[in-house]
Nucleic acid binder design. Structure first.
Lengths: 192, 192
DNA sequence: CCAGTTCTTGAGCTACAGGTACAAAACATG
DNA sequence: CATGTTTTGTACCTGTAGCTCAAGAACTGG
């Protein structure tokens, strides 16, 4: 009952995500959001409560819509190293194809808000944990299949690969071309 | 001639750097700077012109005072892998010891401003380039000394190590303890 | 069709961001 | 010590961040 919403909340959060992703949290104004969502300011605050609450929804949406892509690739079929290479290449491809060069929203959020926003920090932490776990599982599989030396600690290598991937996505924000990033991908695969 | 400055400009930029480093660019207000520098707002704008100009000075100061530490360690004495391990450990140590957990200002700036501020992006790019070059040189040295397989491309491995180091410093912003980061360091050294 | 509920719009609010203006203060030089 | 130059503190300015509110619009159940 009551008047029905004139806009689709999910689509609105999607738009908000795009804006926060491009501009970061602090640099995004209510006006930016109103413009992007195409709704009045009253509706915005009525529906979402605050800029911060909307940001949290946007970050969750990012996790559910974007952050899973890599994880799925890692858990696919074929040789372990091929999958890793494909996943890293996909990151580079995505980051450099994006006309706004927004990089990874989780990475950007970690850099901008980790010290000041524990809610955001925890969300990002969990996203990283999930990716790290997928990488660890991949390494584990590689050890069993013989593609990766059993000498190596799957947890340590998984953490290292997360670190490299995160660094890759951050470097993509300032990289001038694809060459260096492509080198990183190859060297990473070769290092296993 | 003229009235002499009542404050030391270098010390002021140092303080500004601390604030920007902790809070980021957008989240830092003129009032924050006035409080931290201990000077009036008039002096601030008279001396530095704008928030952005002061940020640029702060970022340059970061480069000259902080970003060189790792590079010096890499160019030191002793086995190549020991130097790399020492350098990475130093990063982890620094990042986790810092009570504000500010991470690396270059990394944070890349995440926050790369898309919107070409001056800052270029500064960060050059900082990364210098570190990358030092890492590449280290790898090259390792190849010659036999510590690192000559099969491996020094440029690619150097870029990979930069990526890992950058990722490490970003992960340090949300890491719960030193364990995972220490694992990354060891796995990275072992991967050479 | 009335009551109750929820949503929308746009005006309005307080505080502050980011910066300017200006007069007084502190120097150097002759 | 008159003059010109630079710095300083404070007041002030415009615009907007981030949010609230009132009045009404669009629904549902009875």
């Amino acid at each position: 009952m009551g008047r029905p919403k004139q806009f689709d909340p999910e689509a609105a959060v999607e738009q908000a995500m795009q804006v926060f992703w491009r501009q970061g949290y602090a640099a995004t104004t209510p006006q930016d959001l109103v413009d992007a969502l195409g709704i009045g300011k009253g509706s915005l605050y009525h529906a979402f409560g605050s800029k911060h609450a909307l940001f949290e929804l946007a970050l969750r949406r990012y996790r559910d819509s974007q952050a899973v892509a890599v994880i799925e690739l890692l858990g696919g079929e074929g040789p372990v190293k091929d999958r890793l290479r494909a996943a890293l290449r996909m990151l580079v491809e995505m980051d450099l194809t994006d006309p706004d060069r927004r990089g990874c929203m989780a990475v950007n959020t970690a850099a901008e808000l980790a010290g000041a926003d524990e809610v955001a920090a925890e969300l990002v932490r969990r996203m990283f944990d999930r990716t790290e776990e997928a990488l660890r599982a991949l390494v584990e599989e590689g050890r069993r299949s013989g593609e990766i030396s059993p000498e190596r600690d799957a947890r340590a290598v998984g953490s290292m690969l997360l670190s490299t991937a995160v660094g890759l996505r951050l470097l993509a924000r300032v990289a001038e071309g694809p060459e260096r990033l492509a080198l990183v991908v190859e060297a990473t695969v070769d290092s296993l």
